[in-house]
Design a protein around this nucleic acid. Structure first.
Lengths: 342, 342
DNA sequence: TTGAAAGCGCTACCAG
DNA sequence: CTGGTAGCGCTTTCAA
């Protein structure tokens, strides 16, 4: 309410003058309060309060060469897994006295690179990176500047610690669930086989099918991407087929695809789950806007984030020569909802 | 792959030495390339590439007193509306040459304050703030340091630009929808009346009821918070009542409450939407994990974010004396799904 | 316990 | 067009 003019923020020297001490003493009061006589400390703190002094973190980082900021670049926070990861990482970071800064690359490798560059310029202490493709280039850049990187949800050749989801198991759990629910003709919807998670999920599906020992027939359809639109387009021929000419289970390699597929089926009068069971993979709440809730295989985002930040902090406090990169695997979890329940 | 030792990052002076020019020239090459002879520019760029030089943004911000970073503090990115807001804001910011840094306050006023402080220390150019309660304190602090703040989704006494959702309309649309679908006995679930959106939604509900001219009976139940657990607890007596002793429509003031309520009803054998229509407000995808999809009144997050960032940029480029704070209202949108469709 | 001063890396002004 | 140089605000020796 007070109509404060946007005056130049107070500096340490202003505080020093008001408190009647030297600039160095104020800095000491800020950073090593115990080395300052209580009475002096109090005068300094009064002056700080009176001036509304807020320390300039840029100058501070510049002078010390240290930063308590950690950056996180994720594919897209619209995918709720990354929100969970961020929450987990945030919590661990704050407990250790670090701040976590978030940036979403919105599915673009270029944007991801820009954010990595940004955090590099900001001289963050380290980086959490959830890439969509091989990002050695970005990782190396940070690493060569002494900024450790921990990869999340991606298993690449990069020389860094990483926390990965067992995506083979994701596929396995999904396929086994459909089989257990009675499906004998399963169609797999997926595209973008350049993406590692997709490949691994396919492998897990194959394992489940094999375990079923010939009882189950599988068919793979390559969708044009991993989006709802891709799912809807790919499902058209299936939706149009005669009841006995179509699969009884549809396994979509992402939730987004599944949502589109369900929409397409319903539009053609095929009931889900009545006529066909459908499930997704990855627990992406953003895609849940149809009118059937989706069975999916979820990632434990919180756990991924906590673990990744733990690894990063470990690397930050260990002499580089003693650090050995580690790889932690987090298991997925099946979440059954109405699209496979009848 | 190359085992680069984490050597001290190159500085401008290193680049200058390698390129055989002065430090000032390198700086010029970086910031005003047109003022440098092309041949020189090229030598500088070669040196930059060779050394893997990355400019220190802290030193840069310190020297110029300017920053191209903008902070955004939102209640929680688990609520997808804030993710949408961030996406919208991000896009506008990047087009204008700014970076948007995200932080989630996780429903805590203290945490929110810490992030505001953090961005203040980082000397960001401005701040986007989506608070849960009156935050004059935080807004004033930033404003008094010459950092404009734009509020989102909150209409308080703060002296700042703001983008708000017409929450009265949210309540109105919700109630009218239930009435149009035939409900004549509506129960409203909500708690936390200290929260402004909640109050406004109630007012809109009242307007819709009034319009119905006595045809509709309303009952209000105060839940213990705005969570699924609160909804589930509050619904117990209703679920236990005889069919003719219970409402035919349940209007929950948040999606989270609605999800819990549906869970409670189903557990007691009350079918949604068969026996009772249920709807939420606020389009929070995180809460959609039941097995009925939720009709809700959604906020236009992208639009909120774009508008807010637009206002901030405007304020950033207008002399303070000429700037007049503005208030923009964004209309909500009804999204009908299965919890009110039979 | 406090003060003085050097320097972190960069920008921008002013000379040449 | 290029070089020299004075800070930006803070931290951190080193002396007093």
């Amino acid at each position: 309410m007070t109509d404060q003019l946007p005056r130049r923020p107070a500096r340490i020297s202003d505080v020093a003058r008001l408190a009647g001490v030297s600039l160095g003493t104020v800095s000491h009061a800020l950073n090593h309060p115990s080395r300052v006589r209580p009475a002096t400390l109090e005068r300094v703190n009064d002056a700080i309060r009176e001036l509304g002094f807020v320390r300039n973190a840029n100058a501070s980082t510049l002078a010390t060469g240290r930063s308590t900021n950690i950056g996180m670049v994720a594919i897209a926070f619209g995918n709720s897994m990354f929100v969970d990861i961020a929450r987990g990482a945030q919590r661990v970071a704050r407990n250790a006295g670090y701040n976590l800064l978030l940036a979403g690359s919105e599915d673009s490798y270029d944007t991801q690179g820009q954010f990595v560059q940004f955090f590099d310029e900001a001289r963050v202490a380290g980086l959490l990176l959830a890439p969509m493709e091989d990002s050695s280039e970005h990782v190396d850049r940070m690493a060569s500047h002494g900024r450790p990187v921990v990869l999340m949800n991606y298993d690449g050749p990069e020389d860094a610690c990483r926390v990965v989801v067992d995506n083979e198991q994701v596929g396995y759990l999904a396929a086994r669930h459909l089989i257990e629910r009675g499906c004998r003709r399963i169609t797999v919807f997926g595209g973008g086989d350049q993406f590692q998670p997709v490949q691994l999920r396919r492998r897990g599906i194959a394992r489940a099918i094999e375990e079923a020992g010939g009882a189950v027939e599988v068919d793979a359809v390559t969708t044009d991407g991993l989006t709802p639109a891709a799912g809807e387009a790919a499902v058209a021929p299936i939706a149009a087929a005669a009841p006995d000419g179509r699969p009884d289970g549809l396994l979509c390699l992402t939730d987004a695809i599944a949502v589109g597929a369900i929409r397409g089926l319903q539009a053609a009068g095929v009931d889900v789950p009545g006529d066909m069971l459908v499930m997704g993979c990855d627990h992406n709440t953003q895609s849940w806007d149809g009118d059937v809730t989706l069975t999916t295989v979820a990632m434990r985002g919180l756990e991924i984030g906590e673990t990744a930040m733990g690894l990063l902090l470990e690397e930050l406090t260990t002499p580089a020569s003693e650090h050995a990169h580690r790889r932690v695997v987090v298991e997925p979890r099946l979440e059954v909802r109405s699209s496979t329940t009848r």
